[in-house]
Design a protein around this nucleic acid. Sequence first.
DNA 1: CTGAAAGCGCTTACAG
DNA 2: CTGAAAGCGCTTACAG
Lengths: 364, 364
Amino acid sequence: MAGIKDVAARAGVSMATASRALTGHPSVSDAARAAVRAAADELGYRANGVARSLRTRRTRILGLVVPDVLNPFFTELARAVEEEARALGYSVIIGNADDRPEQLDHQLRSLLERRTDGLLVAPADDPSAELLRRTARSGTPLVFVDRWIAGAPGVPVVRADGRAAVRALVRHLHRLGRRRIAVITGPAATATGRERLDAFRGALGELGLPPRPELIGHGDFRAESGRRETARLLSLPRHSRPDAVFAADNLMALGALDAIRAAGLRVPAGIALAAFDDIPWFAHLDPPLTAIAQPTAELGRAAVRALADRIEGRPAASVTLDARLVARASCGEPGGARGGGTGRLGNVRRCDDGAERRERESGS
Amino acid sequence: MAGIKDVAARAGVSMATASRALTGHPSVSDAARAAVRAAADELGYRANGVARSLRTRRTRILGLVVPDVLNPFFTELARAVEEEARALGYSVIIGNADDRPEQLDHQLRSLLERRTDGLLVAPADDPSAELLRRTARSGTPLVFVDRWIAGAPGVPVVRADGRAAVRALVRHLHRLGRRRIAVITGPAATATGRERLDAFRGALGELGLPPRPELIGHGDFRAESGRRETARLLSLPRHSRPDAVFAADNLMALGALDAIRAAGLRVPAGIALAAFDDIPWFAHLDPPLTAIAQPTAELGRAAVRALADRIEGRPAASVTLDARLVARASCGEPGGARGGGTGRLGNVRRCDDGAERRERESGS
DNA sequence: CTGAAAGCGCTTACAG
DNA sequence: CTGAAAGCGCTTACAG
């Protein structure tokens, strides 16, 4: 493959001039620039990014570590991240932690070794997140997205605050007559898992509903845990069985649907179901599923912008957006037993929330 | 950040010995190896992969270019690719072509510049796929996955042959009394789009059903085209309106569902619907959707293995797997008007097809 | 088993 | 505006 030396030779200039012409350096004569460009075209020259990176100490690659690429939320997030990164001139390497702490470390090490210019991470707060904390302290440009961990001061966090939406959801269920509302939580090790559970409990309290430990299912953001915990909830003695289930993410909601169907129950007649994280398919489930929607793509874009700020030496800001409730038929009423899916794709929203909120605090 | 020079100094050996100790070269004394390892640990040394790549001319990065990352088929494919790649010691950069030829070129250029060791591409056969063809000829290790293009001889193709499954689907519809079967195709520029349409037409012919041009909707594998074409089909004069729609991918099926719902029709009573590409949510749609399932993860793994073969100088083989029909309720009967979703997650399969087939032909 | 030295392909002060 | 030269951080023949 032709190198810059070949291009320079063909254009009859030095490597230095060839390099300047190709990288758009201003002080190159028009004649030289034209000759170099022509030579490069003729040779089909493509700069060796590895050599360039070694010299410039920048790879223009961003690392993104997500807990589970198959989770539609993270898929959409990754897509938005890639798009915004591309717009800013970066490529993205996605690392899938597969919800395993050692995988997170593996991905982190791999990304660090590749000298990505910066890292976007949605971590679980595991004691073994030591490497992540060290990375944060080491000065590697780092931004947390969706989730964050303690012990990493100065790292901007880009996330959606789901508390108001969870509160709206619980009130929605209450208004529709549900009183024994169960929740299937995410891992206590995740910031989002804790936040959703806290908001849920708080909302219950506000409505004067007693806390019922047996109605809390401990899931892990994966479908199987949703199925398992829902099955358990449905096998409770009749008087303590829930009349509604709130799954703290979309995959657990899928599992919950499985369990509900296996038990021969109907939604919402037999039991209400709602999920955190909205996806296009929810409008077409049987019945259309009530869910809390995050501004996922905007989260991804904001995270990339914050990271680029960090990398390029500008002050980076944390960003908090709001999630919102999309009420469909799975808890009763909205849209009726049928329906709930009219109009434009994925746009069947009845929002119970306020406007989007952004809070910008200067990062360090 | 500590470099190998620092490690060598601390261990009291030369850079050469330090390098050998760290990369596991056999001819290093145990004492030196231990000293180097200790020094590396103490300094928190992490090799600079950029420098290593420049020297070894290998990046251990694979490029994967998919037409649309948001399409669950490609998401699952990408996940399997990343997993298998990691097992073989590679990272993966995913490029999203976003179904735009110029984006494909952009991603290709970016990946080539980064000197990825090899490329996995699911291309659209556009005239402008010239860069891709040139890349194939240039000797860059390349494997096509899912889709392929003409004019790239010697490039292994890893894909599923959907023809038998499409045929099984058409017979399934026919057995259930459907006679005016419409199809919403993918772009004629894609190998998969053409194959599915050809198989569909062939199957119609075998059953003695006349071809009806007005029942062919030209889609682009995106949801909106499925909606639009289905709306058009449903607005045909009553006597030529279809009694079944086959969407050639899952996103167009989503759009079709939208249009059907907007028209106030029920599935399958008002119209039957089936899709190419199965996803977990299909079992929970209203009604559960009959679909053709590809062995997506296996496709991804096989593609990576073929590419690794190429990269590492072994002969690479094309691989063809079979897709299979998963009959649920959306065309009538199986599982009844309700149901169709029992048992394990995404495993509600009634297969009308034979065993998996693999065809290995030695690549060049 | 070990070390000195070359070199991977670029970019960029430095001097002119 | 241009060129000669150094250097990014490694690995690896080569010689010992």
